[in-house]
């Protein structure tokens, strides 16, 4: 590979994760070995399922905006990702 592009640094609930430019949040998380980041109504863990914005299983909060599909959203350097508890927190 002639040229290695710089990484994209994001945080997930405060933990830094690095991906490649243009990658979606979901791809960065999976490449980093993380497969779940949301919970179903019973508390069961969920992650990517459909990968194309249909199933809404991969929702995260990005820089304070909730319900962002991690499989569609390309990460920007510095994005602060938080997972979304169903029972507490503010809208």
């Amino acid at each position: 590979m002639p040229h290695k592009p710089p990484g994209v640094r994001i945080t997930v609930d405060g933990t830094p994760v690095t991906g490649r430019p243009g990658q979606t949040i979901a791809a960065i998380l999976i490449a980093a070995g993380r497969h779940s980041w949301r919970r179903g109504p019973s508390g069961s863990p969920r992650g990517v399922f459909c990968g194309i914005g249909v199933c809404f299983d991969c929702l995260v909060t990005v820089n304070g905006t909730r319900d962002v599909r991690a499989c569609l959203r390309r990460a920007d350097d510095g994005d602060a990702i938080t997972t979304q508890p169903r029972t507490k927190g503010t809208p």
């Binding site: 791809a27 497969h35 399922f49 459909c50 194309i52 199933c55």
Partner: peptide, 23 residues
Amino acid sequence: WELPGVVTAGAAQVLAKGERVAV
């Protein structure tokens, strides 16, 4: 089928082709 790591074939395809990531 709701367990993380169970994905649609389309998801695996998009992650591979669009992101160069193996599910």
